[in-house]
Design a protein around this nucleic acid. Structure first.
Lengths: 96, 96
DNA sequence: TCATTATTTTGGTATTTTGCGAAATAACGA
DNA sequence: TCGTTATTTCGCAAAATACCAAAATAATGA
């Protein structure tokens, strides 16, 4: 879970996450939306993948990124734990 | 708010936050609980203070740190926003 | 097979972060 | 005022991160 907090530390990566919330996007789409080079963006994707926050699939010559919604849910649970709150189900978490 | 995400990126700082949830503690208490030097810990406190996540008060020769609960609440709101969830007040975010 | 498009990997530099020991600061009590 | 305790600031090195241009890879279609 360390990887996830690390992934969220960058404003660029949080912007990527926000964009992917509305729809899956190609690396190029995201590079156009952000003023950042493609190699740099590719590095950010590696961080997001390491945190398991996004998945990718190839379609022809393009690669399409999407959000791993379930991991985001897990992240919320961890986050609430950090804050000392119960999660939505009222359970105490069992650490995976 | 960038500072807050940055502050959460370090496992050491998240450990500090967790400890401060249960009670206010002196810098020395926390240094004893974590295997980390006091100068290094002091640096982490500066990051937490910059993010406004903790407050400090002096009591004699010791300095006591405590969690800024309201900022943690704000952080939760930002976090839910990042995930595209409504916050406790039922507001929708405006997409940037 | 060759050219084209989309993306990643490589290689390099600059910046930031993390860590420590030594010295400085602050408050106290004798 | 001096010594003690608690903590921070300073100075510096090591490690991690972010960034880009150039080269490499992958898929496609002519």
């Amino acid at each position: 879970m360390q990887d996830v907090f690390q992934a969220l530390a960058s404003p660029v990566r949080r912007a990527i996450i926000k964009m992917l919330r509305s729809r899956d996007m190609t690396a190029g789409d995201i590079a156009d939306a952000l003023t950042i080079s493609k190699p740099t963006l590719s590095g950010h994707f590696n961080v997001l993948k390491a945190a398991n926050l996004v998945h990718q699939r190839r379609e022809g010559t393009t690669i399409i990124y999407g959000l791993n919604t379930s991991v985001m849910e897990d992240l919320l649970a961890d986050f609430l734990d950090l804050m000392g709150k119960e999660d939505a189900r009222g359970q105490e978490e069992i650490q995976p």
